[in-house]
């Protein structure tokens, strides 16, 4: 895109600047639209599983429900509790929302269609997703109220626990792909299964890691069955208890943007991202970004499905799963995968 703006007569730095801003808008605005539609989809999926109709009043099939909710929330008054730490209370939702958007900078939507094609892309995502906890922790502390504070402590412990095993899962993928660049990781999956199937998940050694990653990504985004940070039966609404109007909506948007990011990561790391599922000439007629969106939505459906059907974990069960099951298993798998790759001469 930089080249296009240069052809309009700008010098390189200006062209780069304008192209980057345009790229950010090109990602962020459709992402917000996608979040609105995905919230609608989420509600429809739960409704179907509970034999209800779900939103069906606003617009055709209730499609505009999310926008109506957004407008309602936008017009409400922002209430800041008098005991709250005002500055931090208002910054917390902004942190959550901004961090949720930042990670999308390195996600490749098609061959070469990525805002920042950096060679530490995966580490960048890990770094940004570890920042996400600050929004929750600061919100919980600044609210100066019991339940948000409990929720903040739970969130901090939960996200740190699951990040460890996510890190080891990512190392397995990186060892196999030999790079941290997301585009190159996708390219490494071309024809991975018998020269026909694109995706690391169809590798017997990496398949268990995908299962770990899927479960860990639900825990990392605090989706049900791991939504202990906002367990309504114990903590009212968790860290969001004192929030209203737009400050609440920012948490909500950030949460769903994070869920979509985790779905995208599942698609990129284990299912070949923008590659078609099978390495056939005819499937390349469909553009890469459509394949990518189909995969994201597939994983989002799995997330919704789990949320609609699985009961919430207890807190000690959550910690046990993270530290006593996932951590040893993923550590063993790092040794196993690197041993296999050494034995078969993958690194030569």
């Amino acid at each position: 895109m930089t080249a296009f703006f240069q052809s309009l007569g700008m010098n390189y730095e200006w062209a780069w600047f304008v192209a980057t801003v345009a790229g950010i808008l090109l990602i962020a605005l459709p992402l917000m639209l996608a979040v609105a539609m995905v919230i609608y989809a989420d509600r429809k999926i739960w409704a179907s599983m509970a034999l209800r109709r779900g939103p069906n009043v606003v617009g055709p099939f209730g499609l505009l429900q999310s926008f109506a909710d957004g407008l309602k929330v936008f017009l409400q008054e922002t209430i800041v509790p008098s005991a709250a730490n005002k500055g931090l209370f208002l910054i917390a939702p902004i942190i959550t929302f901004t961090v949720a958007l930042m990670a999308w900078a390195v996600i490749p939507f098609n061959a070469g269609a990525v805002l920042a094609d950096i060679n530490v892309g995966l580490l960048y995502i890990l770094a940004i997703s570890s920042l996400g906890v600050y929004g929750v922790v600061v919100a919980g502390w600044a609210s100066n109220s019991k339940y948000p504070f409990f929720s903040a402590m739970r969130a901090a412990a939960q996200m740190i626990s699951y990040e460890v095993s996510i890190g080891f899962v990512l190392i397995c993928v990186v060892l196999w792909a030999g790079t941290f660049n997301l585009n190159a990781i996708i390219e490494a999956q071309r024809g991975h299964g018998l020269g026909l199937v694109n995706g690391f998940a169809f590798n017997l050694l990496l398949f268990p890691m995908w299962v770990l990653f899927l479960i860990s990504s639900m825990a990392e985004t605090a989706r049900a069955p791991f939504d202990l940070t906002e367990a309504e039966s114990e903590l009212v609404a968790g860290y969001q208890t004192e929030y209203s109007s737009m400050s609440f909506a920012l948490f909500w948007l950030g949460e769903y943007a994070n869920v979509l990011l985790m779905c995208a990561l599942n698609a990129i790391l284990f299912f070949g991202g923008w590659l078609p599922p099978l390495e056939l000439e005819i499937l390349y007629w469909i553009p890469g970004w459509i394949w990518f969106f189909i995969k994201i939505f597939l994983f989002f459906f799995i997330f919704s499905w789990v949320r609609a059907t699985v009961p919430r974990f207890r807190y000690d069960q959550l910690m046990r799963l993270g530290w006593k099951v996932f951590l040893p298993l993923s550590l063993l798998w790092v040794v196993l995968v690197s041993g296999y790759l050494m034995a078969t001469g993958h690194f030569v």
Binding site: V120, L123, Y124, L126, A127, I128, S130, L131, V133, Y134, V137, A156, M159, I160, E163
Partner: peptide
């Protein structure tokens, strides 16, 4: 990236 992952993402969270 390591600075952010290790210090910001883990050490400072525990500190906080």
């Amino acid at each position: 990236m390591l600075l952010v992952i290790v210090y910001v993402g883990a050490v400072a969270v525990l500190f906080l």
